[in-house]
Design a protein around this nucleic acid. Structure first.
Lengths: 140, 140
DNA sequence: TCTTAATAGATTATAAAAATCTATATTTTA
DNA sequence: TAAAATATAGATTTTTATAATCTATTAAGA
């Protein structure tokens, strides 16, 4: 019932990158140090976010990462789903794993279906616009 | 980000027991068979629920389990917390693990604090009254 | 051509979840 | 009173997921 550390790190990294001035890049090392994330683990995370189209990367000495689009156009759900796959709050919500579809009235599933919708809606509502460089002060 | 199978089994078992007629008991074997839960695992679960005061148990040939109080007085949260401990939707919500308390404005924590409150409220609202023996038909 | 970046993907380590096992205690009933 | 069916206690094992690291390569600027 807990977000993975990987997804938490990813959210923090994207929040960090959201605070860059237009055109600036942040390197893995810089973000890792600023946010206390294990460097190699973060490398893996940013790699995945790049492949998924959330970030854009540049190699070479002056390389680093920036967002692929405006901060407000990237949601928590976007980032979390790249890290963890589709949100599933209980196994039975997924049809393939529901042991109760045959039963006339499952006691449990409808409740979790509803809760899952709730949390997905919240993850979708929350975007990185609030963190953009003009909203929050200095980067560590 | 997913409820443990253990907690899911526990909810199903308590829902099952909620459907018993007043005074009736259900044995581990019966519940396990009816709901497709591994028998020994369920034994462990019901043991814990009994110790936590959610269920009452009786040993011996005619033994089994019943609720310790009315179905509507047992919430999903009660059962889930016995299985998983306090609900924590992200590590950083817990003060002891928050790496960002020192930072002026953490980007992530307040959001999850709010979501956690939401889900806890929903777990507290949902009780087993809806499953009581007169509300839903026959037990498998 | 050296340095500092990202990329790819395999590998290892750690921890949590899921399940099982062994032995014991309790109660009913034959 | 013995046998059968139940719960209890708690350790152990198995499996899976998470977290982290490692090795080698590619790319670009100084």
């Amino acid at each position: 019932m807990q977000l993975s550390r990987k997804a938490d790190y990813a959210l923090r990294a994207v929040a960090y990158i959201s605070q860059l001035k237009k055109g600036d890049l942040a390197s893995i090392g810089r973000i890792a140090k600023a946010r206390g994330i294990p460097r190699e683990f973060l490398a893996k995370i940013l790699k995945e976010l790049t492949r998924a189209g959330v970030l854009v990367s540049f190699q070479g000495v002056t390389g680093g990462y920036r967002l692929s689009r405006l901060p407000k156009e990237i949601t928590f759900l976007d980032v979390i789903e790249v890290m963890e796959g589709p949100v599933r709050i209980n196994l039975c919500v997924d049809d393939r794993h529901c042991a109760c579809t045959n039963e006339k009235s499952c006691e449990i599933r409808p409740f979790f279906v509803k809760q899952q919708e709730q949390i997905i809606r919240a993850f979708k509502r929350q975007n990185f616009g609030a963190f953009a460089h003009n909203k929050i002060s200095k980067l560590a």
